[in-house]
Amino acid sequence: MQRYPMTPQGHAALEAELKQLKSIDRPRITASIAEAREHGDLKENAEYHAAREQQGFCEARIRDIEAKLGGAQVIDPATLPQEGRVVFGVTVVIENMDTEEEKQYKIVGDDEADFKSGKISVNSPIARGLIGKSKGDEARIETPRGVVEYEIMEVVYG
């Protein structure tokens, strides 16, 4: 079974989405399908086909979330030994050694990643290059524009 690392917040968000899909979206889509069926000929009924397509997307997302929750490995960084190393769930402040530009990222699971809000996937090149390093260490990260060197300025747990 594949394991999906996620923070407690990411796990709660997936559970909330699953509840929304099962208790609100699924019944609404079922009602839309029933209503569209009442309009007669299903071959040329665009509402029916749109509702069926929406139902397919909804059911696929439900299966996807259930699989991820079933294989969830919830990791709370606040409970980890705080040795100052970059691990899953921490927030890390890094400085580009060429431009001296600082960036802050929280390392999270794939479903939680949102680059614009500073959350990067544990499987991203940046996170993979930082994992295991400590404050003051340098990391060489392969980016689309070439290798970039960063210095780890701060590691925050929790």
Rank of each mutant, 00 (worst) to 15 (best):
V122A: 11
I94F: 09
A72S: 05
G84E: 07
P81L: 10
A127T: 06
M97S: 06
R63H: 13
A72L: 01
I107V: 13
T91G: 11
A127Q: 02
G70R: 07
I126W: 01
G129R: 09
I131N: 07
R63T: 14
G132D: 04
K68P: 00
P77K: 04
I107S: 08
G56V: 10
R128C: 00
Y105I: 12
V86A: 06
Y105F: 15
N96K: 01
G118S: 07
Q54K: 13
T79E: 12
S124Y: 00
K106Y: 05
E53Y: 14
P125R: 04
N123T: 12
E100P: 04
K68R: 11
I75W: 03
L130K: 02
V93Y: 10
R128L: 11
A67Q: 14
V86Y: 06
I126K: 04
A78Q: 08
D76I: 01
L69C: 04
E83D: 15
T91C: 08
G89E: 01
S121F: 03
S134K: 15
D76C: 01
G70I: 07
D64E: 14
S117R: 15
L80V: 11
D111T: 09
Q82D: 15
I131E: 02
E95A: 09
V86G: 08
E59C: 09
P125A: 06
I75P: 02
Q54Y: 02
G84C: 08
D110I: 10
M97Q: 10
E53S: 15
K116Q: 15
R63G: 12
S121A: 04
K119V: 05
K135I: 14
Y105S: 09
E66Y: 06
D114G: 10
R128K: 14
K103V: 11
S134P: 07
Q104P: 05
T99D: 04
V108L: 03
I75C: 05
E100T: 12
C58Q: 12
R128G: 00
I62M: 10
V108W: 00
K103H: 13
Q73A: 01
G71R: 05
A113M: 03
R63V: 12
Q82K: 15
A67M: 13
S117V: 13
F115A: 12
P77D: 13
V74K: 03
D111V: 03
